[in-house]
């Protein structure tokens, strides 16, 4: 196999590559935040005139909250907030397809490139 000679990359082109990578990575990480689609927010329950008993706290639990500086009123949101774990099977399937598809693509493209590397390094068989 003929030895591949990589072209020399100019400084401007290098800079453009870095900018592209930065935009893509910051975009991917911040996009869900900007679109308010990031993370599972907990939803606090509504408890009128909360007491430790109405918040379901026993004496020891209430004592620890008080030692941390909380009152039933200030601790109510913290104690009653819960995640919602309901999900759609369609979304789950989409996620599985995306992950598996990504790794399949990765392995397939890598294999093509890898054969080229081995052929040049060790010679054609």
């Amino acid at each position: 196999m003929a030895r591949y000679i990589a072209p020399v990359q100019g400084k401007v082109s290098q800079l453009i590559d870095v900018i592209v990578l930065l935009i893509l990575s910051i975009g991917a990480l911040y996009l869900p935040l900007w679109m308010h689609m990031a993370g599972a927010a907990k939803t606090p329950g509504v408890v009128e005139n909360p007491t430790w008993e109405s918040l379901g706290q026993n004496a020891v639990q209430a004592g620890q909250y008080e030692a941390l500086g909380y009152t039933p009123a200030t601790a109510a949101d913290l104690i009653t907030a819960r995640f919602d774990y309901s999900f759609s099977y369609l979304n789950l399937i989409v996620m599985v397809v995306v992950i598996v598809g990504y790794f399949v693509m990765m392995l397939k493209f890598s294999e093509t490139e890898y054969r080229e590397v081995i052929a040049e390094k060790f010679g054609e068989k």
Binding site: V20, L21, L24, S25, G27, A28, L29, L31, P32, M37, A38, G39, A40, F83, Y85, F87, N91, L92, V94, M95, V98, I99, Y102, M105, M106, F109
Partner: peptide, 22 residues
Amino acid sequence: VFLGYGTQLVAMIGFYIVVSLW
């Protein structure tokens, strides 16, 4: 991760697919 942060997971894999093609 899917149970709480599925959007980030898909966004991040989308990013890796795009940069892989690049």
